[in-house]
């Protein structure tokens, strides 16, 4: 374990030198500190030229890659669905995923609760970026211009949903999503924790998640309406 960390760190330093030359890599974060944060990931993921499938898929070349596209890795149904919907790993989507995996992929099998600190995420992303083939081709925004996604205030998260309103609104969901939790072609949305439901809907509303039907459905829901839906679907488990 220890050895792998050091090995990764050495590579990162090498890469950082190259990146600094074209003036881009430093804009994301500190790759050297990112290499230290990588220990959270390295129990399951490998990175580098010889990286293989472990408990998780290898992260070499992750930037610009379609979600769920490493051949031979047994992705969750939820991640595969995101991949076919068009989710691609960019600075923005990776940042959101690392902050809270459930924002982007509700049924992910990655057992990682997320990195709250934006600086830590930036550093980790800077580290990961060293292992993508052509980092100089990857567009990136300056760190100050990179917002957190989905944009969710504490107030929004704290909203108490109106369950009766949620029940009415839910009738729009159940044309496709079955209340009994069937999961053929269209994912189940019953028995979700309220918070997961809220962040997923906001991720669609802010077009972080790719599915066009869900983007459309979520985009006209107010914060209160999303809370109402979450309260209703959450109540089904009681």
């Amino acid at each position: 374990m220890r050895e792998r960390v050091f090995f990764a760190l050495a590579l990162a330093l090498g890469g950082a030198g190259e990146g600094a030359a074209d003036g881009h890599a430093e804009a994301i974060g500190d790759a050297e500190r990112g290499a230290e944060i990588w220990v959270y990931c390295s129990g399951c993921h490998q990175i580098g030229p010889d990286a293989e499938i472990g408990i998780g898929p290898p992260l070499t070349g992750i930037f610009g890659r379609r979600a769920a596209s490493v051949e031979g890795f047994p992705y969750s149904k939820s991640m595969s669905r995101m991949g076919s919907d068009g989710l691609t790993w960019t600075l923005t989507t990776l940042d959101a995923y690392i902050e809270n995996p459930l924002v982007l992929v509700s049924g992910t099998r990655m057992s990682f609760e997320g990195l709250e600190d934006p600086t830590e995420r930036a550093d980790l992303l800077a580290f990961l970026r060293e292992y993508s083939d052509k980092p100089s081709n990857i567009p990136e925004a300056a760190p100050t211009a990179r917002p957190d996604y989905p944009k969710l205030s504490e107030e929004t998260l704290a909203l108490v949903g109106d369950e009766a309103y949620g029940e009415y609104l839910s009738s729009e969901c159940t044309t496709c999503h079955q209340r009994d939790g069937s999961d053929q072609g269209i994912p189940s949305i019953t028995l979700w924790p309220e918070k997961d439901f809220v962040v997923a809907m906001h991720a669609y509303k802010q077009k972080l998640r790719p599915h066009p039907v869900m983007q459309m459905m979520a985009s006209r829901l107010s914060d209160e309406e999303i809370a109402a839906l979450a309260a209703y679907f959450g109540s089904l488990s009681n």
Binding site: G83, S84, T175, C176, Q178, D180, S182, I186
Partner: peptide, 21 residues
């Protein structure tokens, strides 16, 4: 092709959903 296949599979899910609804 992957997206078109997913769209087709989604239609199967929708059919099951709307008829149950």
């Amino acid at each position: 092709a992957a997206l078109r296949k997913a769209t087709f599979e989604e239609s199967l899910g929708w059919y099951a959903g709307i008829t149950a609804d």
